[in-house]
């Protein structure tokens, strides 16, 4: 099969798929999720049920919290696979990092990045944000350490054992709150009613802030482990 024949066949396949998608869109009914059904219920009574101002956080960590647990399991599987594939025995090759100016400036800025990450995590039920986004911001700190200060600095400050501890701690917090839901309210990952307080304050909304903190540490540590495993002997040159 020569090149031209292959291109012609590919273009035929692409045109066919595009036409099928277009026909499917013309068959699709209008969007009516808000008039009836689940979305209507969540919008009407989500604030009274969970005490969380942010309805997306209410869906993620209360109504569909079991789904989020499955997602955490997927991240755990990805981290396990990457560490298993890229496992190595020796320490990483260190670099001297970037120049003095960048090191000092990031030394000033890194605590504020950490503060912003914790703000996004703990205010997940009041403002946009939550465990996933704040966790990725915390993972960015580890990436900054690896690139700017060299990977040996990252190894000394947050060794892989510490990251593993954070990740398992976050997952165990999630599972423990789920089991507490069984013991006190009667269903797995049920929102703990005795923890609710006045709506709009920082510690309210039952167990949602604690699940946020657990998911944040789990996602942050997991993505930091992924990045740390992928930079073997990468930044050895001195820029």
């Amino acid at each position: 099969m020569n090149k031209l024949m292959k291109k012609i066949m590919i273009s035929v396949v692409l045109t066919g798929v595009a036409f099928a998608l277009y026909q499917n869109f013309s068959l699709m009914p209008e969007y009516q999720g808000l008039n009836e059904g689940l979305s209507n219920y969540i919008i009407k009574s989500g604030l009274n049920d969970t005490g969380s101002l942010n309805l997306i956080t209410a869906v993620l960590y209360d109504y569909r919290a079991f789904d989020s647990l499955g997602e955490s399991t997927v991240i755990f599987g990805a981290v396990s696979g990457i560490v298993l594939i890229l496992s190595r025995k020796m320490l990483p090759v260190s670099s001297k990092g970037l120049s003095f100016i960048v090191k000092r400036a990031l030394g000033i800025m890194t605590p504020f990045i950490a503060l912003f990450g914790f703000y996004v995590i703990t205010h997940g039920h009041l403002t946009p944000g939550g465990g996933f986004q704040g966790g990725v911001i915390l993972a960015a700190i580890s990436i900054i350490f690896s690139i700017v200060y060299g990977s040996a600095f990252d190894y000394r400050r947050y060794s892989p054992q510490t990251k593993t501890l954070f990740e398992t701690g976050g997952a165990l917090t999630f599972l423990g709150l789920g089991l507490a839901g069984i013991l006190m309210e009667g269903a797995f990952l049920q929102n703990l009613g005795f923890l609710t307080a006045e709506t709009g304050t920082l510690i309210s909304a039952g167990s949602i802030p604690y699940i946020n903190i657990g998911v944040g540490f789990k996602v942050g540590a997991g993505l930091a482990i992924i990045f740390y495993s992928m930079i073997q002997k990468t930044f050895e040159e001195d820029f």
């Binding site: 997306i56 946009p128 996933f132 986004q133 990725v136 993972a139």
Partner: peptide, 14 residues
């Protein structure tokens, strides 16, 4: 807003 924050942090950063 939540999806925008996640996309900015993950898609453009990580």
């Amino acid at each position: 807003a939540d999806v925008a924050l996640a996309e900015a942090v993950i898609g453009a950063g990580l």
